[in-house]
């Protein structure tokens, strides 16, 4: 349906969450407090905001260096799930409620019970959805250990989905087994998938011979991750056609549309915020809209997964 050529229809319905456009922040980037969430909405114009991953109790995270820019243009981080614990959820969600923007609470835990505990708190606080972080690569015993295992993914997603009324989104990281893992998450009740997370990586300082990150391992993000994320989204969409939120190295309108063509319905932006501030979300949205006009696409819904139909 063509509405207006100069303003393509960017609205999407993400498992019942109505979004004015596809762009939101990626979890972990300036999203750990009510004040920062407010900036993402007011300055960045996010259509939804995703909190930093929250565990039941506060976590201190790793010691620095925890974030380094790479010569290839991406970042490596090992923040270590630093977060203020579930007590912060109500005050963060209330900012979204006040400003009329959906808040997706990212949830992490060291067991299925912990995922459930935080998810229940999110629902009670009136969050719009939870995103289960099943793929954090830099905190031992959290995230990746579950997300690389199809049965653990199914168990945790199933436990949370069976209790919550709000949509459960599973955030999956890079894996050669992604289709199987995605299938298990959907089977267990996930209404959407966030693909991808950072990919486990490390850097060594050649002048001293030491790993740079205190945690040794971190997660690679930014443009070097983008083609990997596009591949993961493409593979999953081609087999399962689920609702997908694409994440990984989106820095402009073109890199966002590439993910949409691969099968994503919405986009999360992380590393570009580090480079250019939260205002980059508005810039990418603007570029994206102009690109759709140029390509004569009047409705975003038309082009989700387009690359599979040509």
């Amino acid at each position: 349906m063509q509405i207006n050529n100069s303003h393509p229809n960017l609205r999407i319905n993400l498992a019942g969450i109505r979004l004015a456009h596809p762009f939101m922040n990626a979890s972990g980037v300036v999203s750990s407090s009510p004040g920062l969430i407010r900036r993402l909405i007011v300055e960045g114009g996010c259509s939804a905001v995703v909190t930093k991953s929250i565990t039941p109790k506060p976590r201190l995270g790793n010691n620095p260096p925890i974030l380094v820019k790479l010569p290839c243009g991406g970042y490596i981080n090992a923040v270590g799930l630093e977060n203020p614990g579930k007590e912060i959820i109500r005050s963060i969600v209330s900012v979204g409620l006040e400003l009329g923007v959906p808040v997706i609470v990212s949830v992490a835990g060291s067991s299925a019970d912990e995922y459930l505990e935080v998810s229940i708190e999110a629902e009670e606080a009136k969050a719009s959805a939870v995103e289960l972080n099943l793929s954090c690569p830099h905190t031992e015993g959290y995230g990746l250990v579950f997300g690389q295992d199809p049965e653990a993914t199914k168990y945790i997603t199933g436990m949370v989905s069976s209790v919550l009324k709000i949509p459960v989104i599973a955030k999956l990281g890079p894996s050669d087994n992604i289709v199987k893992i995605a299938g298990k998450a959907l089977e267990a009740g996930a209404k959407a998938l966030t693909i991808s997370n950072t990919i486990k990586a490390m850097i060594i300082d050649v002048y001293t011979g030491r790993p740079v990150l205190t945690n040794i391992y971190g997660g690679l993000s930014g443009p070097p991750l983008h083609p990997v994320a596009v591949r993961l989204i493409y593979e999953v969409y081609s087999e399962l056609e689920p609702l997908i939120i694409g994440a990984g190295g989106v820095v402009n309108g073109e890199s966002a549309l590439e993910m949409i063509f691969a099968g994503a319905s919405a986009i999360q932006v992380g590393s570009a915020i580090i480079d250019r501030g939260v205002v980059v979300l508005r810039e990418i949205l603007h570029e994206f809209e102009e690109l759709l006009v140029k390509l004569e696409i009047s409705d975003l819904g038309q082009c989700v997964g387009l690359a599979h139909r040509l």
Partner: peptide, 22 residues
């Protein structure tokens, strides 16, 4: 200050959304 690049939020001035590092 931990990440130094305005990501982790460790240096936020309580509740203000202002980051010392950025």
């Amino acid at each position: 200050v931990k990440c130094g690049l305005g990501v982790c939020g460790s240096c936020e001035i309580d509740g203000s959304g202002l980051l010392v590092c950025r």
